[in-house]
């Protein structure tokens, strides 16, 4: 599991007077489970992009344990992300033409991170997320099933942190609930740090800490007091 220390982030996009993101400092304890909420356009996805190194920042520091990802080159940041962050995105970003199993294994195999037992682990994970046909082609799957494949892929290399951006937003409520449940359960089992950006209040309720963004700033940060229904 990884902990985060973030300092002096100020992201501006051309044509926007106010910064899209302005965060003095943010700390996530290793193993903590955090919900990131806020209205549409409040900067949740932008924050996730810079935390994962998908977007470069001009200034500030982003330390995951003691690695400052701002100091890494593009290629090394990609590699670091592959090894340390389990990503789940709203649009799945799976690769058509490959089976569920091949999709789960693709990033690891491209990175040359194919440990001996990794095939078995991929099958286990697929079973664990409730998919019994690992050879099914990805484009023939339902959206709920696709997001489960994405969760299995995110967890394959035992990342220190799992980060999900609206994992349930493109699913109906039932499939969304199931996917949210799996995400929580599997990350708890692996003990990794978890950060989920979501509009889904019932999902946010089930995490330990809640950060609310508005206009690119943290306006509320504290433990989730209410118990999940």
């Amino acid at each position: 599991m990884l902990g985060l220390q973030l300092q002096g982030i100020d992201i501006r996009f051309p044509g926007l007077a106010a910064p899209a993101l302005a965060i003095e400092s943010l700390t996530l304890a290793a193993g903590s489970r955090v919900a990131l909420i806020g209205a549409s356009g409040s900067g949740k996805s932008t924050l996730i992009s810079i935390l994962t190194g998908l977007e470069r920042v001009g200034q500030g520091r982003i330390l995951w344990d003691d690695v400052d990802i701002c100091a890494l080159s593009e290629g090394r940041r990609d590699r670091w992300r592959g090894a340390n962050i389990g990503l789940v995105l709203q649009d799945f970003h799976l690769f058509p033409g490959l089976s569920a199993l091949e999709n789960v294994l693709l990033p690891a195999s491209l990175s040359g991170a194919m440990a001996r037992d990794i095939g078995a682990r991929a099958r286990d994970l697929l079973l664990r997320v409730g998919l019994t046909r690992p050879t099914q082609m990805i484009e023939t799957m339902s959206r709920g099933e696709m997001q489960r494949v994405a969760i299995a892929r995110a967890l394959l290399r035992r990342p220190g942190v799992v980060i999900a951006d609206e994992p349930t937003a493109s699913l109906d409520s039932e499939a969304g609930a199931a996917v949210g449940e799996l995400l929580l359960e599997l990350s708890r089992e692996s003990g990794c740090t978890l950060l989920v950006a979501t509009h889904d209040l019932s999902l946010a309720q089930r995490l330990d800490r809640r950060i609310r963004l508005a206009g690119g700033r943290i306006v509320d940060d504290g433990p989730v007091l209410e118990q999940a229904a």
């Binding site: 994962t52 998908l54 593009e74 290629g75 990609d78 590699r79 992300r81 592959g82 090894a83 990503l87 995105l89 970003h93 690769f95 693709l106 990033p107 491209l110 990175s111 040359g112 892929r153």
Partner: peptide, 9 residues
């Protein structure tokens, strides 16, 4: 997507 999921350059 390949890059996001960690494929090396």
């Amino acid at each position: 997507a390949l890059r996001a999921f960690g494929a090396p350059r």
